[in-house]
C-alpha cells in the first residue's frame, strides 16, 4: 500500500517532527517500499497464534517498597537546555 505525502505529514505530526517539503516526498517513496515488504506478513494465517510481547517469558517484576535516595537536583538538571533555579524551563503551553 503506497504511503502518500499527506499520510507522511500526518504521521510526522504525531511524531512531532517538522519535516521539510523535500523530506516529505522522499519519505513517501521510501516508506511505501518498506511497507510493501512488510505486508508479506499477511500471507501467514495467525488467527490461532498468541502474540509474543517479549521473547523470554517473565512475570511482573516488582521491587520492595523502600525509600531510597534519588539524584541531587544538580545531576538531574546537568543536561537541561534551559533552567530556572532547580526547574526545567519551557515555553508557555497555555495562553
Amino acid at each position: 500500500m503506497p504511503i502518500d505525502r499527506d499520510t507522511v505529514a500526518h504521521v510526522a505530526e504525531l511524531a512531532r517532527i517538522d519535516l521539510r517539503p523535500d523530506e516529505l516526498d522522499d519519505l513517501s517513496v521510501e516508506l511505501s517500499s518498506i511497507v510493501d515488504h512488510i505486508a508479506r506478513l499477511r500471507e501467514l494465517d495467525t488467527d490461532a497464534v498468541p502474540p509474543t510481547a517479549h521473547a523470554v517469558p517473565m512475570e511482573n517484576v516488582l521491587r520492595e517498597d523502600i525509600v531510597a535516595p534519588s539524584w541531587p537536583p544538580e545531576a538531574v538538571l546537568a543536561n537541561a537546555s534551559h533552567r530556572v533555579g532547580d526547574l526545567f524551563e519551557v515555553q508557555a503551553i497555555l495562553d
Partner: peptide, 12 residues
C-alpha cells in the same frame, strides 16, 4: 526519522 515514522505509522 524513517524508523520513527514507520513505527508511528504501524501503531497509529
Amino acid at each position: 526519522k524513517r524508523r520513527i515514522l514507520l513505527g508511528t505509522y504501524a501503531l497509529s
